[in-house]
Design a protein around this nucleic acid. Structure first.
Lengths: 297, 297
DNA sequence: GAGCCGATGAGCCTTCGTCAGTACGAGTAC
DNA sequence: GTACTCGTACTGACGAAGGCTCATCGGCTC
């Protein structure tokens, strides 16, 4: 099953004769003759009827040729795509983002990327678990991972900036009276938390522990949008990245004191593609919050 | 650009490693390694990133692989189609029919063919000119041609039966009073005729000449349906195969005396495909009119 | 250091390509 | 009608290129 045989068969069908096909293909006539014969022998079917004036496709030959043309065209397209990739940025970029981080910056960067390289397609996975994200990274299926910093973050990760966190309170909550919420004031509040192994829950837990609080968990959700909605309806309070609060709900969010923010890292493979580097640069240029504390990583 | 390279690349992408791909493909590992390298060298692009645990597609590699998969699938399908053609009747049958002949029998035969061989597709050309039909036949693009007999019909043509002709008259025409029309009574009538080099016009002219009539031509059309419609509206009289008179217009048609009929031939290629033979047999089984005169061909 | 990965080089063999010559049919001149 | 030419595809022999395998090497992870 060689593509050459298919091309030769298509040329013969197109030209109606082996000689003409050979001329078109810039090879000698016996070569085409042999390939056609070999193909027919391999398939066990006569693809062409021999007439004194040339070769004509048989009934089954026509059906074969229809599929063969699809194959040859796709093969040529594959080739052209790869060749184009040598000059322009072409292909499919696979990005994973840790749920809740970079929700404002990533769309901006991807939009800019698309404007600069229209033939570059991007697929984004949202993944809450740090362990799973790391596994995908190690397996190499990702071109870029956007994740919250943690102890196990690789040394060559790029620090993009920080994600600032805000508390979301139910409508009419007493703490909405102030411009900011002191963490100590949240003692005893019911909490809308995040999935057990998610980075968002890790941040939440770490912040509360540092201030000697033990959260009273009323629900666990996987998405920030859900957490905000549930908190707004008074189920409890929650702590989410500032960029995760949707328009129209800002009046229910308050900055935290002391400021809570978390470093966001981008992990790319070692010998980075031009496409990967381009996305990394665009992510750097997006507006990020200032760091609340020196990055320990 | 070999299909083998594409298959190997797909296997590597699928398995994530050269070794595993080689095992899947039942070849030694260096073979896969060489093919991948050769492909990358030929395309001038790195399709896979080398990691300590295996190979992972690059950005452009993923785009290439998407097309490559289409190519390989189509190639396999082409192969399978041809292989199936060795057992079952599979493929595309190209049939040409001389306009106005076999209009009732051909659909019947094609329906029966489709019921028996559902994977056999049929394309029908309608062609008025005998010369053009013969040209297509000689070039071999046709699997079967259905045509009116003539002096130049090939000797190995199959006589299927005869097409009986009727005269179509305008509503209220005086000759509608009788059950049949004598040819001599048509003296001086205006005629709706057919395209100059069509078989239908040849029949018409031959019949009239044999009875010493010279037609007064008011129009030439290419399709029998048009001729019948125009005749029905009183533009003139016409002579068409009985099967060409649509339902609801039978009252305007009359048999001719002496009976006019014309042999219909099927021409197939020499070493006939099974599919061609099948269609020929089905056409034979369709109901045809009895011959009005001994077939001289 | 053991075990996995891919890359490399040598040798064998298949396959493809070319050139020459053959066979067959169609059309044409005589 | 016969012979000739021109077109077609096929066959066989030979050389070149490429694929496959084996053994081996270098790098990385655990």
């Amino acid at each position: 099953m060689s593509l050459r045989q298919y091309e030769y068969a298509l040329a013969v069908a197109e030209e109606g004769s082996v000689t003409a096909a050979a001329e078109l293909l810039r090879v000698a006539q016996p070569s085409v003759s042999q390939q056609i014969r070999g193909l027919e022998r391999e398939l066990g079917v006569q693809l062409f009827a021999r007439t004194p004036t040339g070769l004509v496709p048989t009934v089954v030959g026509r059906a074969f040729l229809r599929e063969a043309e699809i194959a040859v065209r796709a093969a040529r397209r594959a080739r052209a795509t790869a060749r184009a990739g040598a000059d322009e940025l072409v292909g499919e970029l696979v990005v994973a983002v840790q749920m809740g981080f970079g929700t404002r910056q990533l769309p901006g960067a991807l939009g800019a990327l698309r404007r600069r390289f229209p033939r570059l397609e991007v697929t984004v996975f949202e993944e809450p678990s740090h362990a799973e994200l790391e596994r995908l990274c190690r397996r190499g299926v990702l071109n870029l991972a956007l994740m919250a910093a943690c102890e196990r973050s690789p040394a060559d990760a790029h620090h993009l900036g920080d994600e600032g966190f805000v508390v979301v309170l139910g409508a009419g909550h007493r703490l909405l009276a102030a411009d900011r919420v002191e963490l100590g004031d949240l003692e005893g509040e019911p909490w809308v938390r995040f999935d057990r192994d998610s980075a968002l829950d890790a941040v939440l837990l770490k912040v509360l522990r540092e201030h000697g609080l033990t959260p009273n968990t009323v629900a666990r959700v996987s998405q920030t949008a859900t957490a905000v909605r549930w908190a707004a309806q008074g189920l409890g309070v929650t702590l989410v990245p500032a960029s995760a609060v949707p328009r129209g709900q800002e009046h229910l969010a308050r900055p935290v004191f002391p400021v809570v923010s978390h470093p966001v890292l981008a992990v790319v493979r070692h010998g980075a593609d031009p496409a990967e580097s381009a996305l990394l640069e665009l992510l750097r240029k997006e507006p990020w919050a200032e760091s609340a504390f020196p990055v320990p990583f």
